[in-house]
Design a protein around this nucleic acid. Structure first.
Length: 1011
RNA sequence: GGGCGAUUAACUCAGCGGCUAGAGUGCCAUCUUCACACGGUGGAAGUCACUGGUUCGAAUCCAGUAUCGCCCACCA
């Protein structure tokens, strides 16, 4: 052999070698190709907020697996990479760092400077993320990398917003947001955390102003925020609460400001069983109250906002205007007390929402926001899932998608941030006469009026002044400037991140540009949009709609549903046919891995430890339909390499450098978690996840099997092979190969990666290695039989590498290239030149002719016989150096099979098959075993302890009697025989006969031994 | 509070109406035999969470209970 083959697979070397090779050969690139069907996967775009974790590794592995598989199947397989700007998450990350390192807030640096800083952050992290993806072997078309804020995606956002605005789907409305009074900004729901806070629970009453004489003159309620009384617009009771029904429709007076408000009935807000059963309603400062207001608008008038952005009371605060809400709270309580409407107060722990960024309590705050009407858009997306245009795997996830869309809640798309797509609306206020002069009657914002389809506007009138809002289609900077000169100002807010990611499947392909293919990024440079010869966007035409979206279940609503919706709206077609939902990764305690919990694990560390293929193979074996994946984490002691299991306290963040103590060598060391950076030069207990040894060991096994094959290919010469050249083990492994190919192909088609992985492992390890390789050893040593054996071996290895390539790309490519040097021409029955690389080799097919299930069954019997002999060896503790003799009494058919593999007994069981046939006589003394239709004898003169053998046989007989009893019971059950399917009954009868045969031979042996 | 899922060997998981309930790891014994100790061979190990029901037959289907996880809603 030209190159030495090491005994252990070196993953790092293969990874460093083959990824650049594939990339330089353009193997990952996908371009419109009418000769091939497309297969398209859009990556669930990772946020540029930080490094990838295990969840991404799982997600990426599956997509790469599918892409490589489809590519081999002859599809033009595109896996589209990219990243998400992730508005809030990224901006707050950068702001936090700026505050910590320089003490600056965003208001200190201003909008442009902050955005510029975030771009720099994005560039750094995007690079990190993309390189992490490459280390898991991701065969994305790297020329097509997109970012949600790049020009291509921005155009799609502008176009979509404009189209929706023109179609009347976008409107302005009020919405309660979480207001951070310290940073004076709105905070997203997921940036809010709850904390138990000491507070009070007051009970007050409001006097009823129009009560009949015989009714109570006041109504009591409780609150934890008395100052909001200033903004009350109603009090609310349950419609069937008999204590209050007579008061519904009457009015009360708020004592502290004298305002008179109605008593309304609302079953959703009021709960008869809680407190007094009566609630005050402050729609501007409480989400539930706001909901009540929307249901009872006409009864209670507009919500009243009592707060300034800094948390002080505004003009609605009356005498307390300008005071902080918490100070005003005490004052309001005192005033109520003075006026005699205070009833009681108790101490209470109150769960209070806090801003994650400023750590101060947030206030619910009513503000103006932009919305998308979901009605028709959502219905279209619902229809697509109902009629099967979009299919979920596993199917049950369709439900979450449907029930969420079914609510058809309008989508709030504005965010009070600076990092993102700024809302493309310019507005200006006009006094009435001014407006009429500027926009004479008939000249409204009807685009047809000017024949302009790139421009749309709306006018609102609040009774005093007009507000004109204008939206432009993309690409008219001059017009924008013109309107800016005329005093129009662009919205400060940006769009919800999901607005741009919802467009991902078509935006990345260049939509809305229908004339040019989207630009490519080559060698770090973005080319301008190349004109396509047909003046069409062929990339979009060819690759849309996509094939499958691979993601985890938590963004089915936020992302998957919205992609379907915008795809239908913009493209008139669904974005992907299948949605594959894979498990989530949990730590050893069943907690999902996340940055905040500090239990995240960097896949790169695992790749370094177990190899990329080992990581991929293991992770694919997790991806089934039911369970989430639990990964117990450990730390490897740097002194003695013992693995210390992770315990919850290892994850708690404590100041200082915590150490971990090894229970084995008793030494302490620092350890690596996302919460700590170990000191330079210190020995570090690194993170290990022992479950990944599964894949690493498998890689090594494959490596050595191939190594064995290649070491035995001396003198290999390709040639056609005749049926008569095939030994029974050849036919068997070819049949198994055909079966496994079929299984894996079917399983991947329905995204059952775990089952596919198992099937492959079992085949490679338990069949190819344990049996086939062992069985051909004698032939490889025989010059006459060697050539045919080599040809079959090479073909089987070739096919196996192709089957494994989507799962373990690096090792298969490494082996493929080595095999190519030794056996460049191969295949059965007629050899052909091997493909240049396994990545571009075709997926195995056409193996069906080798399939022979009867043979597989016969072979299984031989295996059982061998195992039984080994078993005897084990029982009597026979030295591996000693060859034992075996004789078998069996039917002529089995005799023929056994004769074929006679020579195998030496290597498989260190035994020689001395006599086989119907006439075989049992030697004495000997060990016995009965296999249904064959009695086997191992003469062991001097080795067998007679009594021990009797005991062994008695034990065996007992076991069989137990089974027989079970079967008998079944057969004696009349209704079983009557009602169970005939073949089931027949099967039980057959097993019964076999068991009885076995038992009688054992009983005979026992009699003889005893006698 | 609503929805979804899980509970099977010491651990991590398959099996989802009919074989003696399987695998990997770990454990025990044994083997450094010319592919592999990241290995070979053999072995021990399970009231299939619990309680009922349907069925000739239930780990598997149904109902309830308990525990865990996730999503959504909510907590005057």
């Amino acid at each position: 052999m030209t190159t030495e083959i090491p005994k252990q697979y070196d993953p790092a070397a293969a990874e460093a070698r083959w990824f650049p090779y594939w990339e330089s050969q353009g193997c990952f690139n996908a371009d419109p190709n009418p000769a091939k069907p497309p297969h398209v996967i859009m990556i669930p775009l990772p946020n540029v907020t930080g490094a990838l974790h295990m969840g991404h590794a799982l997600n990426g592995t599956l997509q790469d697996l599918l892409t490589r598989w489809r590519r081999m199947q002859g599809y033009e397989a595109l896996w589209m990479p990219g990243t998400d700007h992730a508005g809030i998450a990224t901006q707050s990350m950068v702001e936090k760092r700026m505050k910590e390192e320089e003490g600056l807030t965003r208001n200190d640096v201003g909008r442009d400077a902050l955005v510029e800083r975030i771009w720099k952050w994005k560039d750094a992290y995007e690079q990190r993320i993309l390189s992490q993806l490459k280390s898991i072997g991701a065969s994305c078309d790297w020329r097509r990398v997109r970012f949600t804020l790049d020009d291509v995606c921005s155009k799609a956002v502008r176009q979509t917003f404009f189209k929706m605005f023109k179609d009347g789907l976008i409107y302005r409305g009020k919405r309660l947001v979480n207001w951070d009074t310290y940073l004076q900004t709105a905070v997203a729901d997921d940036e809010v955390y709850e904390e138990e806070t000491d507070g009070h629970f007051w009970t007050f009453n409001y006097p009823v102003v129009d009560a009949s004489a015989d009714a109570p003159q006041s109504i009591s309620f409780s609150t934890t925020r008395p100052e909001t009384m200033l903004g009350d617009t109603a009090v609310c009771v349950h419609p069937t609460d008999e204590r209050y029904t007579h008061l519904i429709g009457k009015h009360v007076r708020i004592p502290v400001n004298g305002r008179v408000i109605p008593i309304v009935a609302d079953a959703l807000l009021a709960d008869k069983t809680l407190g007094t059963g009566c609630v005050k309603v402050t729609p501007a400062h409480d989400p539930n109250d706001y909901g009540c207001w929307t249901r009872n608008k006409e009864k209670m008038g507009e919500p009243i906002n009592i707060l300034n952005p800094d948390g002080t009371l505004n003009e609605n605060g009356g005498p307390w205007q300008g005071q902080d809400r918490l100070i005003a709270r005490e004052a309001v309580v005192a005033e109520m007390q003075r006026l005699g409407h205070f009833e009681k107060v108790e101490d209470r722990k109150i769960p209070l929402k806090h801003s994650d960024r400023s750590k101060t309590p947030v206030e619910p705050y009513l503000s103006e926001q932009w919305f998308v009407k979901m009605d028709t858009l959502a219905q279209a997306a619902i229809d697509a899932a109902n009629d099967g245009r979009v299919t979920f795997y596993p199917e049950r996830y369709r439900q979450s998608y449907l029930s969420w869309l079914g609510e058809k809640r309008d989508w709030c798309i504005s965010r009070q941030l600076w990092w993102g797509h700024r809302i493309p609306i310019w507005s200006r206020e006009y006094a009435k006469d001014e407006f009429e002069k500027a926009f004479p009657e008939g000249y409204r914002f009807n685009p047809d009026h000017e024949g302009a389809s790139w421009f749309h506007g709306s006018v609102s009138f609040d009774g005093a002044k007009y507000t004109v809002r204008i939206c432009f289609d993309d690409g008219h900077p001059d017009v924008e400037r013109y309107y800016e000169q005329a005093g129009f100002v662009q919205e400060e807010d940006v769009l919800d991140t999901w607005f741009s990611s919802a467009l991902w499947p078509h935006a990345t392909l260049g939509w809305p540009d229908r004339q040019h293919n989207p630009p490519l990024r080559v060698a770090g440079q973005t080319t301008s949009a190349p004109a396509s010869p047909s003046s069409k966007n062929e990339v979009l035409d060819y690759f849309y709609p996509g094939s499958v979206l691979v993601t985890s279940r938590d963004i089915i609503t936020l992302w998957v549903a919205r992609m379907v919706l915008t795809g239908l709206y913009n493209m008139g077609d669904i974005p992907f046919k299948h949605v594959c939902i894979h498990p989530k990764i949990q730590d050893g305690f069943g907690q999902t891995m996340s940055k905040t919990k500090g239990n995240g694990v960097d896949p790169i560390e695992l790749i370094e430890k177990y190899g990329c293929d080992g990581m991929r193979f293991t992770i694919a074996s997790f991806a089934g339909e039911t369970q989430d994946v639990r990964l117990p984490v450990g730390y490897e002691c740097p002194h003695c390499q013992a693995v210390i299991p992770q315990e919850p306290h290892h994850l708690k963040f404590k100041p200082g450098k915590p150490k971990i103590k090894c229970p084995k060598c008793k030494k302490e060391s620092q350890y690596a978690t996302p919460n700590y950076v170990p000191d330079e030069g210190e020995p570090v207990a690194r993170i290990v996840i022992e479950r990944f040894e599964y894949g690493r060991n498998f890689s090594n096994k494959l490596w050595n099997a191939a190594r064995f094959a290649m070491l035995n290919l001396e003198g290999y010469a390709p040639a056609p092979i005749a049926d008569s050249d095939l030994a029974i083990e050849d036919r068997w492994i070819l049949s198994r190969l055909a079966t496994v190919t079929d299984e894996v192909t079917t399983l991947l088609g329905v995204y059952k990666f775990d089952a596919a992985t198992r099937s492959l492992r079992d085949y490679v390890w338990n069949e190819f290695c344990d049996w086939y390789l062992e069985m051909i050893k004698p032939r490889l040593r025989d010059e006459g039989l060697k050539p045919a054996a080599q040809r079959v071996l090479v073909m089987v290895l070739d096919t196996t590498l192709r089957l494994l390539h989507p799962f373990t790309p690096f090792i298969t490519e490494e082996l493929w290239q080595r095999l190519k040097e030794i056996a460049p021409v191969r295949g059965l029955p007629n050899p052909e030149a091997a493909h240049d690389a396994v990545i571009t080799a075709p997926w195995p097919s056409g193996l069906e002719t080798w399939r022979d299930s009867a043979l597989e069954l016969r072979f299984q019997r031989l295996q059982e016989l061998i195992v039984a002999v080994r078993n005897v060896r084990g029982t009597y503790n026979i030295s591996p150096a000693v060859t034992v003799a075996v004789s078998v009494k069996c039917s002529p058919e089995i005799t023929a099979d056994l004769k074929q593999v006679q020579v195998q007994f030496e290597s498989l069981a260190k035994a020689s098959l001395t006599e086989v046939g119907p006439q075989t006589v049992r030697p004495t003394p000997c060990a016995n075993f009965a296999l249904g239709d064959a009695d086997c004898y191992v003469p062991l003169a001097g080795l067998v302890d007679l009594q021990a053998e009797v005991d062994r046989q008695k034990k065996e007989a007992e076991k069989i009697r137990g089974f027989i009893a079970g079967h008998e019971k079944k057969l004696n059950n009349a209704s079983f025989v009557e009602r169970a399917p005939a073949e089931v009954v027949a099967e039980v009868r057959e097993t019964m006969t076999n068991l009885q045969k076995q038992l009688s031979s054992i009983e005979e042996v026992i009699r003889e031994l005893a006698g």
